[in-house]
Structure formats: structure tokens, C-alpha cells
Design a protein around this nucleic acid. Structure first.
Length: 981
RNA sequence: GCUCGAGUGGUGGAAUUGGUAGACACGCAAGACUUAAAAUCUUGUGUCCUUUGGGACGUGCGGGUUCAAGUCCCGCCUCGAGUACCA
């Protein structure tokens, strides 16, 4: 083989590892460059072709920076805590640490084969105790801090205690939970427990009750993501809303700074917009409505100017006052509605805009200005977790309120002058207010100001800025996450002292919740903990984003045992200069990482305020998913004769073109289907219709459209020994039972192009391609696919063309018999022109991150030099340096063949010389009325007037002029000639 | 609904500041080599018309600005992503 990529790639990968070619030095005279890619979660499916897309781009740029004289930090690590390893542990009993280690080794092998310039001595793993020791330490700093609104930064809680000691809390302006005012004397009189309770209101991480999706059957909390069609994706169990005491992070304290500082980073506008919208700043007023029975209902409104248009109020069904104010007559209806709501996820409640629902409590509030009686309703469009969980409804100015009023026959008052609200609410802010006492004849803007002034003056509210952003829940009822450095005496939490960190994960007998729904850590015996204090340890673990909120700092100083990062190293490496990763993290990771960076900056541990100076978001590589449908498990098949059938409780998998299945259709001979639960069924004329939900099958089980049942049958519980129903009958435990003569025994799936992800089981790994074409080809091909930022479906059709380019490139350095042969002669003009044109293109493309066009330009250069039969050493050496950041293995090999003894990574990026591109003539495109007709070669230095004369004198022009004189002639030197006839 | 993207040959895409639309590659077709196939190489390849000179049309649709528009402006359509009863 002429270009033996396998041999070459192995050889250089070993060389790089042995010589630590990519080690970053912490001190240098060179300017620093910190290039980072989002680290992967090492899933069991292996690295997929979407991961390297960003890594390759990041690698090319880091190599380019090195060639241009920078001290480069380009690290990689693993986000190694997470759910899939835990789920695997639950199924197999295998400790997640072992699974993770296996997966991680596979990832490492895959990454090594692609030839990245990572400094592996700096690898971090979030699940490593030496790493999460510092995650726990940062948690402790957050616990021991409060947010001082006056100073606009976080401060230590010790200093807050001093203030309480001296002056109580009256003078403190903190971002905190509502706390009654107390004096210094009060404080001194409080017990230890009382003091801790008060401090909890101020801490940046604190215990509070939050709503969660509780799945009683699984004994665990589910993410919105894990819920499909109202039931758990795994197992298909019912999910309800539940209030749970959990750790939260007071990210809301940073809301304003998180919005403002977006102006200081170089990110795409769309990511910045997403964050701004997520934080959702809105300016308005908080107003208290008294109920007839004397309770206070606080609402937040952005339109206090419309307060005279209030015609009812709506509380979230979970609002704490609902039970108290509901009158006897409406009690049953309210409770029914509350129950209904509790079965819906927040996402469902928000998604369904068309169905208007709600219930009247029987209670009335009094309008603060008019004293008028206002009905109080509950409705699921008001969310308990947002704002105060209560709304003053102004149907004339809000479409949602308008629809609600219309649906329930509530009066609609119009307080906007000269507007028509017979069809819809008037939501523009340009109307003049009327029928509103002191607000009459004012435009909205002025009316808002006056309304707030009046509300404050009369003492039933105040001007307020609200954020949509909520405090981030930080507890997970899982095993495979960071344990909290927290223990309890009674119900009061205390921190484990620094010297005892880390609190490592204790061994447990099972990775499942306990019988009474406690998290898995509650299973650990007291002496299974490396640290055990107080009555018990914290049983929750931290969420996935804990470790990833600060990992970019640890790379700077990965082995430091004294600090999470030394101040000097943080100062040297500073912000990440270029961060490449997916835009799907816009409102998660990227927001939390900014939050922690700001906090650590406030506390003086690092000297910068934003983690990622510039960011590029690579487009998703889309995969081809395989879909089937599963009938709800609550409809369990029961056969009195076959007890095994019952104990196995098999799932029923149907082909995905069917949306609903009738019990009677199951038609399994000798067995009688009996519904033991009706939760997910509806009786119709045809019989009991069972709802189904769409689920993914591993694409590795698919051949064309056919599902390989043997493979599926051995997969996880939902598929293991399931009943697979196809058109001709059903498969159960690898036996086919025919129930329909006309159908087939082939089970077909349907496809959908969507995000490539482990949870969708549609992952394609790069391994086969590396094996067949080599890493250099894969690297160039992934870049060649199209613009980095654009989403694209994965397709390997074009990879041959890219591979051919590398072979052709190899041949520039070799004769027909594959002997290395280059010439030492002076380079000729044509070759110099090709080279310098390419230097210019490649540099420009790199600077604007246009990786795909760079590959095209390499191809063009290779084609031209092949055409010129150029094997000039001087030319090829420089071209090789350009290519080396894209295809490093072949570049190293040829570089050493050229007689160099050091790695090509130590070379200097070639300098562009414009002199070589100077041409004596320019071929002018000559247009008539904007249409290009012919080309004419003229001297470059010819003046516009001379060009015009030359063109008009040309024979070809006469034809298009057709004897007429041109109306106008435009000449743009060295560009174009356009003649208007 | 809102926000942000995108829409160019059979396909992925190029055109960086308004100046030759379709670079580069895939696919396809024909030819060369071969007993044959694969691989490789060469040539052609936007569509339609054509007297083989060339002509007309052409960057989602409809307008506009301009000597000149894929690019700028106005209005619309389709697709994708994100996001929401946010009060």
C-alpha cells in the first residue's frame, strides 16, 4: 500500500505519548492560549461521531495556535458521574465505578486513535474522589456565603453573623428567603437551632421544599426528560407532583449579573438570547390583595397600570392558601381539580394551551383600590414555582386571562380607551387608560410609574423586578453522584470539616431507593461511610452539573492537593480562550458554570468573572433512530393457566405505525387477556383501547427496517422477553405464534432523524471509519461535512473523496513506485503562487473557524501541484505545516521523511507573501446589463478609462452592442466591467 | 404563539466587503486499463431549447433598491432549533 495510514498513525501516536509532545507548561514567555472542548459523559455506547466533530475543530485550532507561537493548554477529561451507569448498576448489580472505568477506558482508546493533541497528564474525572473533594469544598463555600445586595457580591456567612450579633437583620440587604426582622438582642436570645434556621434563609446553598416529578413505582424522582406521555419512559409507570425537601443553589442572586455580563463575552447572539430569556428579567410591581376572610394574596404584575381591569384572581392549584380559603360548597370540585393537576408534569401543563381548565374556590378577594369583590379561581396555567404562584387576571389586556374569562363566563372590563376587545385582548402597550380613577387618560408607560407610586404610598405593595430564573435544585435521589459534605443532628444540617474531605461514596447492597422511598445512600451502614458524623449523613447526592461547573479550572492545576486551583495558575491560564461545545447546554451547564465562576471570583479565589471568553457551538450530528411502541404496563396480561406469564409481567411491543391497540386484538390463543388496571385504557365500541408510547430501540438491533428480536429479547427490562406483536402474530420468548394467516412474522420499526445520543440508542461510533480510512481521513472528513455550527445528518458517502485527497497528497512526495522523492531546486513561480494562495486561504479560514473550506483548499492545492508535477521540497515543507493541524499523522511522517528530526508541532506557521500572487494581467468578466458575456484579459495596472476603451474596441463587444452606443459603462478595476445598453 | 437560524444542482456544500452563481467533493454517465469485476485514471455533468454558433431560465415565493442582488430592504411560504400559559 502506498499510503499506509495504519502504520503511520500507530507510530506517531506512540511517539507523541512517549515524548509528551502535547504537555502544557505552566510558565512561558509565549502568549497563552486555553482551548477547551466540552468533556464527554463516558456512556456504554462509546464515543459517537458527534463528539469528535467539536474536538477535531478544537484540536485543529489548538495546533494552529501552537504553530503560531502560543503556549497552549488543550486538556480533556470525563464527566463521569451520571444516570446510565447507575441504571446499569441497578440492572446488573455491577458497581457504577467499574462500569464507568470500563467505558472511560474505551473512550480513551477511541480518542487516542483520532490523534488529538490533548495533554493527558491533566485529565480530570468528576467521579474521582480527588476531584470531587473540591466539588464538595466549593459546596461548603456556597453554604458559608450569603449575597450582599449592597456590595453586589457574595460574602462569608461569618461576617453576616457578626452583623446579626451587633445590629440584627434590619440593615441587611440580602438576596434571601423571606425572614422576619429581628434585633441584635433577639439574635442573642435565639437557640442554636433557631440561629441555623435563620442563617439557612441567607445561605447561597440551602435546604428548601421544591416540586418534583415523583414516581411511586420506581420510588424515585424523574426529570421531565424521563417522562413520556405522562408515564415514566422506563417501565411506563405513573408520575405525580410532590413537594420534597432538597438542597438548592441561590443562582437567582446572580440573575442581574448573569444578564449584564453577557455583554463581555464573545458568544453567538442566539445563546446569549437563550440565557437572557431563561433568566427572564421583568420589571413591575408586587401587589397584595386581601381576601374577604383576611388572608393576603401576593401577586406580581408587569402591568400595574391595568389594576382597575382586574376581574378575577387565579392561584396555582398547589398554592398554600387554596385549602384555607375554599368554601365548603366548592371543596370537592377544588380537590378533584388539584388531584388532576398533580398528575400532570409542569411541561404538560405548559404545553397544552388549547384546553382551558380551572375551578372556582368560592372565595373572594377585595380590590385594593375599589374594595370590589373579586372571584378567586385556581388553574393549572399558573405555576406554583413561578413568582408568587398567584395572578391578578386582567382579561382586557392579557389573551390568556381573556380566554379564561370567556370560557367561564366572567365579566371582562375594558380599561383601554378606544380599543375593541370583542374578539381578543388588547395586549399592546400603546393604549390610553380609562375608567381607572387616578390613572385615567395616561399612556401605559406613565400609568405604570404612577400606579407603583400609589401602590407603595397606600402600602399594599411595591415596585419590584422579577426573574423567571428559579433557584436550582441541587439534590438528586441517586447513588452515582457526589455525596454532600453534610451530616445532620436532628433536622439541622452541619458541614463536614475540611480535613475530613472528601466524603466518599459508601458501599450499598443495592443501588435502588429504600422501601420507604429514601435515596440509595440511606441503605449504607453507618460504618460504610468514610466519614460519619451526627445522627446521619446526607442521603442525597449532587446533580450532574456540579462537577462540570468548575472543571475548566481544575485543568489548570489538576494535581493540587491544597486547593481546587492555585491562585497563580488560575491567574496565568485565566479564561478559556475558545470553548467548543453544543448549544443544547445554553441554559444548563453554561449558566451554572458562569454562576460558580462569579461566586469564586467574589470570594477572591480566582481573578476573572466569566469562564469562557469565546465560544463556538458545533451543530448536532443527527442520527437515524429506530422506533417502536410499547403498550402501557398498567394493562397487564393475565392468564390463569400460565403463572409464569404473570410473574414475568412482559411488556407488549407493537410496530410503531399503530398508535392504539385494542385488547381484543391481542388474540393470543389459549390465553385470556385481563386488564388489571384501567389507568391508561379507554373503553370504546371496539373494546378496551390501550394507549401506547413511542420508545427507542438500539439501532444495532436493526437490519434495514427489521428488528432483530433475538438481540432485543436480551436487552433491558422493557424488551426482555416482551411480547412482540407483528402483522402475522406475535413473538414471545423467541417463539412465533401465528394468529393471522395474511400477515408476516417480521417485526418492522420506523425511522426518525434526530439528535444522536445515548438515550436515543442511535449512536454511530467512529471506530469502523478509523479502521478503514484512518484518523487523518476521519478528521478531514468530519470538517469537510459542512460549517461547524450547522446541524447535519451523519452520512459516510463522501469519505472516499477525502481519503483520495490524502493519498494524492502523499503522492506529491513520492514517485510512481512509492519511493520518497523531493527536489531541492528553486521553487518555480506557479508553485509559489499555489503555496501562498493556500497559506492565505488556510489562515483566513482558521481565523473565521471555517474548517470545511480549508479542507477544500488543501484539495485545490494538491490538485494544482499534482498538475504542475511539483515535488519541490521548499514548497511541500510549508504546505505540510499547513496540513499538519488537520492531518497530523501523515504530516509527521512526511515531515520526518523530509529530514526533520523534531516533531512538526514545533514548526512555525508559514508566512504569507503577497508578492507571489501579483499578476501582470487580469481576466475581466464583461457583462452587458449585468449578464456576463465574455472575458477579456487586460493588464492589471490599466486605468479604468483604458479598460473601458479596450473593452468597447474588442470585436466581441460589437455583437452585444448591436450598433448602439452604450448608455453607461461601469469599470471596477481588477473586478468587473458592466455595460448598459 | 414567540425568539433565533436555515432554504443554492441528483447529494453535502462554496461564493469572506453587493461585482464571473454552483468552488471542492459525492453521485451519475461515457471512455481507458482488465478475460471479467473491483480499484485506478481520463472526460462530461444546473435545467430547458438549439440549426451545435449559441439562446432562454436559474439561489423557497412575490415585490423593491442598484449599472449589478444568493448577498441589501419590504411582505409572505416552508423547514429546523430553542422556548413559554412568565402574569
Amino acid at each position: 500500500m502506498e499510503y499506509n495510514f495504519k502504520e503511520i498513525e500507530t507510530k506517531w501516536q506512540e511517539y507523541w505519548a512517549e515524548n509528551k509532545t502535547y504537555r502544557a507548561k505552566d510558565t512561558s514567555d509565549k502568549p497563552k492560549y486555553y482551548g477547551l472542548s466540552m468533556f464527554p459523559y463516558p456512556s456504554g455506547a462509546g464515543l459517537h461521531v458527534g463528539h469528535p466533530l467539536g474536538y477535531i475543530a478544537s484540536d485543529i485550532y489548538a495546533r494552529y495556535k501552537k504553530l503560531t507561537g502560543h503556549n497552549v493548554l488543550h486538556p480533556m477529561g470525563y464527566d463521569s458521574f451520571g444516570l446510565p451507569a447507575e441504571q446499569y448498576a441497578i440492572q446488573t448489580g455491577q458497581h457504577p465505578a467499574i462500569t464507568t472505568e470500563t467505558n472511560l477506558n474505551r473512550y480513551r482508546k477511541q480518542l487516542d486513535k483520532i490523534g488529538f493533541s490533548f495533554d493527558w497528564d491533566r485529565e480530570v474525572r468528576t467521579s474521582d474522589p480527588s476531584y470531587y473533594k473540591w466539588t464538595q469544598w466549593i459546596f461548603k463555600q456556597l453554604y458559608n456565603a450569603w449575597y450582599n445586595k449592597d456590595a453586589k457580591k457574595a460574602e462569608t456567612i461569618d461576617n453576616l453573623e457578626v452583623i446579626f450579633e451587633n445590629e440584627g437583620n434590619g440593615t441587611v440587604h440580602a438576596d434571601c428567603a423571606e425572614t422576619p426582622t429581628f434585633s441584635a438582642a433577639d439574635w442573642k436570645g435565639y437557640s442554636e437551632v433557631e440561629r441555623q434556621q435563620i442563617l439557612m434563609n441567607y445561605r447561597l446553598t440551602f435546604l428548601a421544599d421544591s416540586w418534583v416529578n415523583w414516581c411511586p413505582a420506581l420510588g424515585t424522582v424523574l426529570a421531565n426528560d424521563e417522562i413520556k406521555d405522562g408515564v415514566s419512559e422506563r417501565g411506563g409507570h405513573l408520575v405525580e407532583q410532590k413537594l420534597m425537601r432538597q438542597w438548592s443553589m441561590r443562582i437567582t442572586a446572580y440573575a442581574e449579573r448573569l444578564i449584564n455580563d453577557l455583554d463581555t463575552v464573545d458568544w453567538t447572539d442566539s445563546i446569549k438570547d437563550q440565557q437572557r430569556n431563561w433568566i427572564g428579567k421583568s420589571v413591575g410591581a408586587s401587589v397584595v390583595f386581601k381576601t374577604e376572610s383576611g388572608h393576603d394574596i401576593e401577586v406580581f404584575t408587569t402591568r400595574p397600570d391595568t389594576i382597575y381591569g382586574v376581574s378575577f384572581m387565579v392561584l396555582a392549584p398547589e398554592h398554600e392558601l387554596v385549602a384555607e380559603i375554599t368554601t365548603e360548597k366548592f371543596k370537592t370540585a377544588i380537590e378533584t381539580y388539584q388531584k388532576q393537576t398533580s398528575l400532570k408534569t409542569e411541561r404538560d401543563r405548559q404545553a397544552d394551551v388549547k384546553t382551558i381548565s380551572g375551578a372556582f374556590t368560592g372565595a373572594y378577594a377585595l380590590h385594593p383600590f375599589t374594595g370590589e369583590k373579586i372571584e378567586i379561581w385556581i388553574a393549572d396555567y399558573v405555576l406554583a414555582g413561578y413568582g408568587t404562584g398567584a395572578v391578578m387576571a386582567v382579561p382586557c389586556g392579557d389573551q390568556r386571562d381573556y380566554d379564561f374569562a370567556g370560557h367561564f363566563g366572567i365579566d371582562i372590563k375594558n380599561i383601554f380607551k378606544d380599543t375593541d376587545i370583542s374578539e381578543a385582548a388588547y395586549t399592546e402597550k400603546d393604549a390610553v387608560i380609562t375608567d381607572s380613577d387616578f390613572l385615567n387618560d395616561l399612556p401605559a408607560k406613565k400609568a405604570i410609574k404612577l400606579a407603583i407610586y400609589e401602590i407603595e404610598k397606600r402600602g399594599f405593595g411595591k415596585g419590584q423586578t422579577n426573574y423567571r430564573l428559579r433557584d436550582a435544585v441541587f439534590s438528586r435521589q441517586r447513588y452515582w453522584g457526589e455525596p454532600f459534605p453534610v451530616y445532620y443532628k436532628g433536622d439541622t444540617p452541619y458541614l463536614v470539616p475540611d480535613e475530613q474531605l472528601p466524603v466518599t461514596l459508601p458501599e450499598v447492597d443495592k443501588y435502588l431507593p429504600t422501601e420507604d422511598g429514601e435515596p440509595p445512600l440511606a441503605r449504607a451502614e453507618d460504618d460504610a461511610w468514610n466519614v460519619f458524623m451526627g445522627d446521619r449523613m446526607e442521603h442525597n447526592t449532587m446533580p450532574g452539573w456540579a462537577g462540570s461547573s468548575w472543571y475548566f479550572l481544575r485543568y489548570m492545576d489538576p494535581h493540587n492537593a491544597e486547593a481546587f486551583v492555585s491562585k497563580e495558575k488560575a491567574e496565568y491560564w485565566n479564561q478559556v480562550d475558545l470553548y467548543i461545545g453544543g448549544s443544547e447546554h445554553a441554559t444548563g451547564h453554561l449558566l451554572y458554570a458562569r454562576f460558580w465562576t462569579k461566586f469564586l471570583n467574589d470570594m477572591g479565589y480566582i481573578n476573572f468573572n466569566e469562564p469562557f471568553k469565546k465560544m463556538i457551538n458545533q451543530g448536532m450530528i443527527l442520527g437515524n433512530s429506530a422506533l417502536v411502541k410499547r403498550l402501557g404496563t398498567y394493562t397487564i396480561f393475565q392468564n390463569p393457566k400460565d403463572s409464569e406469564f404473570i410473574s414475568d409481567a412482559p411488556h407488549f411491543i407493537i410496530e410503531s405505525h399503530k398508535s392504539r391497540y385494542y385488547l381484543e386484538e391481542l388474540d393470543i390463543p389459549g390465553q385470556t387477556p385481563i386488564l388489571i388496571s384501567h389507568d391508561l385504557c379507554a373503553k370504546s365500541e371496539t373494546g378496551w383501547g390501550m394507549e401506547s408510547s413511542t420508545i427507542h430501540v438500539d439501532v444495532n438491533f436493526i437490519d434495514g427496517n427489521e428488528l432483530n428480536l433475538q438481540l432485543a429479547n436480551n436487552w433491558h427490562n422493557d424488551f426482555k422477553n416482551a411480547v412482540y406483536i407483528c402483522s402475522g402474530g406475535y413473538w414471545y420468548k423467541n417463539n412465533f405464534v401465528r394468529t393471522n394467516e395474511n400477515g408476516t412474522d417480521i417485526f418492522t420499526i420506523s425511522h426518525e432523524v434526530e439528535k444522536m445520543s445515548k438515550s436515543k440508542f442511535n449512536v454511530q461510533t467512529p471506530d469502523d471509519l478509523v479502521e478503514k480510512f484512518g484518523a487523518d481521513t476521519l478528521r478531514c472528513y468530519e470538517m469537510f461535512l459542512g460549517p461547524l455550527e450547522q446541524a447535519k445528518p451523519w452520512d459516510t458517502k463522501g469519505i472516499n473523496g477525502v481519503h483520495n485527497f490524502l493519498r494524492k497528497f502523499w503522492r506529491l512526495f513520492h514517485d510512481a513506485e512509492n519511493n520518497f522523492e523531493v527536489s531541492d531546486a528553486e521553487p518555480d513561480k506557479a508553485a509559489l503562487k499555489t503555496l501562498h494562495k493556500t497559506i492565505k486561504k488556510i489562515q483566513e479560514d482558521l481565523e473565521r473557524f471555517s474548517f470545511n473550506t480549508a479542507v477544500s483548499n488543501f484539495m485545490i492545492a494538491t490538485n494544482e501541484l499534482t498538475e504542475q508535477k511539483c515535488n519541490n521540497k521548499a514548497i511541500l515543507s510549508e504546505l505540510l505545516i499547513l496540513v499538519s493541524s488537520y492531518a497530523p499523522h501523515i504530516a509527521e511522517e512526511l515531515w520526518s521523511k523530509l529530514g526533520n528530526t523534531e516533531s512538526i508541532t514545533k514548526a512555525n506557521f508559514p508566512t504569507f507573501n503577497a508578492d507571489f500572487l501579483v499578476e501582470a494581467n487580469f481576466e475581466y468578466p464583461v457583462s452587458f446589463n449585468g449578464k456576463m458575456r465574455f472575458k477579456l484579459s487586460l493588464p492589471t495596472e490599466m486605468t479604468a478609462a483604458d479598460v473601458q476603451a479596450a473593452v468597447l474596441a474588442d470585436d466581441q463587444a460589437a455583437k452585444y452592442l448591436d450598433g448602439k452606443a452604450p448608455k453607461k459603462v461601469i469599470v471596477v478595476p481588477k473586478r468587473i466591467v458592466n455595460i448598459v445598453v
